[in-house]
């Protein structure tokens, strides 16, 4: 019982611990150098400006991680995010430029178009997974390769620049120190949380993750829900793509790079179990913040950037190990 409570709150505690940890290193450094430094108050890490920096960096990853959260709750996995993000970003960019190139014209249609592309890829993922009964990690991995490949075919390896000021205001216009994209992400987060906890579909994800046979026996159309889940995940991948393009102003084949590992890291570090049925959207928010607080904090206290991938790797393994109840599993593949 106590273990359950610890497991439930551990990710948040880790986040708080990390946020308080990095300023200690800064304080130590200034203390050694004999400078005046009041802990937290004089910290460069613990400042609104840096918080905004972390939020902006984390926004695309948060969208992608939210998408895959739905899938992992179902006990499946979606590894197509890199390809989905790339192809959504590229098609968005092409449509945006073709329809006028500014958000104030018909070009706004490129946004729903990108979301449709994401949903479409997710739909195919789910359909192939359910109809041909192929494990989801393999279907989605292959679909991801197809997505990246398609993005490469469309762009021919070129970068597409989106210079529209209205669209770029996602990043450039700030309200209360945070760019608009953070508020858009917050809205998407709330929508995702609502879907998870206040819709039948969301509850069904948990039912499938908790026990597929039981869900089927209780009259759920498991196959249909799975396909819908993958399509929903695809929509959030596309949102991630839009945020990524909004952040750097470029859509290219490489737009999707690294999202696979970061989003899965965020989900498992946040405490959503890979076995399904446990965790949810709030966990993913905590998880993505942990991931980006670590990468940002390591830079602030001057650790080399090559360390980041390795630290995340260790973190993911640790998180999965800690969240696994050994009694309930017999074999692992």
């Amino acid at each position: 019982m106590i273990r359950d409570i610890i497991v439930k709150w551990a990710p948040l505690l880790v986040l708080v611990f990390l946020v308080l940890l990095f300023p200690i290193f800064e304080w130590l450094e200034d203390f050694r150098a004999g400078k005046d430094h009041i802990y937290l108050l004089d910290s460069r890490f613990f400042s609104v400006r840096n918080a905004s920096r972390i939020a902006v960096a984390a926004t695309p990853g948060l969208m992608v991680a939210i998408g895959v959260t739905f899938i992992i709750i179902m006990g499946s996995i979606d590894l197509s995010m890199e390809g989905s993000v790339s192809i959504s970003a590229v098609i968005f960019a092409f449509a945006f430029l073709a329809l006028g190139g500014t958000l104030l014209s018909w070009a706004w249609l490129a946004i729903p178009a990108a979301m449709l592309v994401g949903a479409g890829i997710g739909f195919v993922n789910g359909l192939v997974h359910v109809v041909f009964r192929i494990p989801s990690f393999m279907v989605s991995l292959a679909m991801g390769f197809v997505g990246t490949g398609l993005a490469l075919v469309l762009t021919g390896g070129d970068r597409i620049r989106i210079e529209d000021e209205v669209f770029r205001s996602l990043l450039t216009v700030r309200w209360l120190n945070f760019p608009i994209m953070c508020y858009v992400a917050l809205l998407a987060l709330l929508v995702a949380w609502f879907i998870q906890s206040h819709t039948t579909l969301g509850r069904n994800f948990y039912a499938i993750g908790g026990g597929e046979e039981l869900a089927q026996a209780s009259g759920l159309n498991v196959a249909r829900i799975r396909v819908l889940g993958f399509a929903l995940a695809g929509v959030f991948f596309a949102l991630g793509a839009l945020m990524a393009v909004g952040r750097i102003g470029i859509a290219e084949t490489a737009t999707g790079n690294n999202f696979m590992f970061i989003s899965i890291a965020a989900v498992v570090v946040g405490g959503t179990a890979l076995w399904g049925g446990i965790g949810g959207i709030p966990n993913t928010l905590v998880g993505i913040l942990i991931v980006y607080v670590i990468t940002n904090g390591m830079v602030v206290i001057g650790l080399p950037s090559w360390l980041q991938d390795g630290v995340l790797g260790v973190l993911v393994i640790t998180a999965v190990v800690l969240s696994t109840s050994r009694k309930s599993i017999s074999f692992v593949k």
């Binding site: 996995i77 590894l79 990690f137 696979m260 590992f261 899965i264 498992v268 890979l274 080399p304 950037s305 090559w306 360390l307 980041q308 991938d309 390795g310 630290v311 995340l312 790797g313 260790v314 993911v316 393994i317 999965v320 190990v321 696994t324 050994r326 599993i329 692992v332 593949k333």
Partner: peptide, 25 residues
């Protein structure tokens, strides 16, 4: 994978990133 019960697609993905770290270093 076997002793810590982490599915191989996650464990190998994570170990791969540790290798990437070393390569970058």
């Amino acid at each position: 994978t076997t002793r810590l019960y982490v599915p191989s697609f996650v464990s190998t993905l994570a170990i791969g990133f540790i290798a990437l770290s070393i390569a970058k270093w």
